[in-house]
Design a protein around this nucleic acid. Structure first.
Lengths: 104, 104
DNA sequence: TCCTTGGTTCCAGAAAAGTCGAACAAATCG
DNA sequence: CGATTTGTTCGACTTTTCTGGAACCAAGGA
């Protein structure tokens, strides 16, 4: 049974190209996605961001990525596990994620 | 000698991934880019946009795409010729444009 | 030369997005 | 239970982006 702390995630078929591109169009969010390339990660270990960033700001970055369908954000004990939705993105927009992750 | 009507275009090496993604993160701008896929086009023939759109708004859409380096906008007699900067985009962000154009 | 056409620029207001403190929530540990 | 850790959410404020009218500009054509 889903915990009340579960956040909504769009279904694969509801992902919008423009929305995904927008979520990725920010250097901070791009850095998070790049870090997730290696695999799931607890939000606390996002070292790519300025360590002095307020947690509400950080949470907002995650929210934009989640609502666009780029990452999954699930409760995991006291933490939150972030996962890149690679399979869904590849299915809907083949090659896009690879191009973004590979760039530069 | 360059006409004063020439608009500034970023050099290939100055293209920013986040900037390009932002320019593409809008349905209207995406539609313009998709139409340019077939080849250069005069701005007046952008049939993808609502025909009732004010020309200043349309010009703004072009400006965002141009400043991000997605399209070239050059004077051509009484018109403006728009060109997708496919070679520059492919060089800097391989696969990105194809993925965007192919999607859906 | 004047008029029309196709387009940019400027400006101001509206809308959207980002920032961050403070309050709240859930899990864990003592 | 109470304190700590790791977050989310809310609300107010700032900043960015969008929108569209009006002025302007350059190229042709009558």
């Amino acid at each position: 049974m889903p915990s009340s702390a579960d956040l909504p995630h769009p279904a694969r078929e509801d992902l919008q190209l423009a929305g995904v591109l927008f979520a990725l169009s920010d250097p901070d969010r791009l850095a998070i996605v790049r870090q997730l390339r290696e695999g799931p990660m607890d939000a606390a270990q996002c070292t790519t961001l300025d360590p002095g960033i307020p947690k509400s700001t950080k949470s907002h970055l995650m929210k934009v990525l989640r609502e666009a369908g780029v990452i999954r954000n699930e409760p995991n004990g006291r933490h939150r596990t972030l996962t890149l939705r690679r399979d869904d993105l590849d299915a809907r927009f083949p090659g896009l994620l690879d191009a973004v992750l590979f760039a530069d």
